[in-house]
Amino acid sequence: MTGALDAAAGVCLVLGSLLSLIAGVGLLRFPDTLTRMHAAAKPQVLGLLLVLVGLGLRLRDPADICMLVLIAAFQLLTVPVAAHMAGRAAYRTRRIRRDLLISDDLAGTQPPQNKPGL
């Protein structure tokens, strides 16, 4: 039983690390900030979740698992926000590759003024 859990933990850890590596390669390979955000958000989050699952399977201590669950929850909440803020800043300062976009519904609309509530 312990052996099976350890094996599963190992598989999760290796897969998770691999996905994080892929996300890193994506940051280098993708041509602009907006496309890089896809790499930073998706394989990165799944990779981290797998690493956390792997850790949980190996540690098996309720207190540690509580902490891992919290880390996972806050990652799921904060990573999309970080990607959104970076993408938005890149778009507003025009640091994006326009030639990659086949259409842009945001072009021509004014960015909202910095009023509370917007």
Binding site: L19, I22, V25, G26, R29, F30, P31, L34, T35, H38, A39, K42, P43, V45, L46, G47, L49, Y91, L100, L101, I102, S103, D104, D105, L106, A107
Partner: peptide, 26 residues
């Protein structure tokens, strides 16, 4: 979908020779 998303991005990362075509959709 989380797994599918990672697979899709991974495919885009390792597709050499062609840059991804994107869109901003409202």
């Amino acid at each position: 979908e989380l797994v599918q998303a990672s697979a899709q991005v991974t495919r885009a990362i390792f597709r050499f020779g062609r840059e991804p075509s994107c869109a901003v959709v409202a």
